[in-house]
Design a protein around this nucleic acid. Structure first.
Lengths: 152, 152
DNA sequence: CACAATTAAATCGTACACGATATAAAAATG
DNA sequence: CATTTTTATATCGTGTACGATTTAATTGTG
């Protein structure tokens, strides 16, 4: 009984990836009404969070932190720029890279978004213990899978 | 030290939703090369799995199981139909609903996909214990959040 | 039974997400 | 120093995702 049976594998695999897939959707459903008020989508919110933590980053730097490609970020950042939350400008030091900076409106949005984390935390219904463990295990899994995917 | 401090909240919330978001992407990266061989995307694979478990379902039934809307499923199912894996036909009993059925190719694909779960399981790098706990906690969280989202 | 309300799909518009490719700038090499 | 290679973004095509709306069929109610 102590080895991993075929049935266990089938059940688990199917449902673990799906649990993550559907949990992501559930997060989105809770985030949406909160972020709508701010005029942001969830991926846009993530970009703003990374900029609130450190302003004036390159597209590449943001992409590394969020695991996103330029093909995803470029249009997203243009939308943030169109909404007046960030500015995009070629780095004079290195004309290949684009520096993304918060505008005053982008900085101001930080206060408006202040209560979002607590609301989301509430909605998860988790205790601190479980959340910390979940977080740790998910990150470990993600990093392991990224390493595996790299080798293909 | 035993109450939930503001900093704890901010760190945790931010990173738990993001851990799930990025873990989902990581799963995709591992799934992709495997599913490419089958001619499926990950959401298409999920639909096929539900049909392998129970053939001849309505769009609505599939949507309930996968938490997806008809606006997502209709074009996805048309692609599966175009690839010859399923058939779509109005239910004569209730002309509003569309019955989705596996074709012979769709049924045959099940064997070709046999090894996928074990490959993915390998790639997670998890032990059975952790995976089961992760799965349980994620589902509980998702259901809690869906219930919260419902009330908005 | 007529007519309103509900339900099931489909359609449309917006926004990710990524692989493949293109473009331009910087770095590395001979 | 000229040429190749690498690097940073941008563009394009395909495929989710979902909210809002539409259409057609069924159900519920007077």
């Amino acid at each position: 009984m102590e080895d991993t049976s075929k049935d266990d594998l089938l059940q688990l695999e199917q449902f673990l990836c799906f649990s993550i897939y559907s949990a992501g959707h559930a997060f989105n459903r809770v985030y949406k009404p909160l972020l709508d008020k701010l005029g942001l989508t969830y991926p846009q919110y993530l970009v703003m969070v990374t900029l609130w933590q450190q302003d004036n980053q390159s597209v590449r730097s943001i992409g590394e932190k969020l695991y996103l490609e330029s093909s995803t970020l470029t249009p997203l950042l243009k939308r943030l720029e169109a909404h007046g939350f960030v500015s995009r400008k070629r780095d004079p030091e290195d004309e290949r890279s684009v520096r993304v900076r918060l505008t005053d409106a982008g900085k101001a949005l930080r206060e408006a978004a202040e209560d979002v984390p607590a609301c989301i935390w509430q909605a998860t219904g988790l205790d601190l213990e479980t959340a910390k463990r979940l977080n740790r295990d998910l990150r470990a899994m993600r990093d392991h899978m990224d390493a595996v995917a790299e080798k293909l």
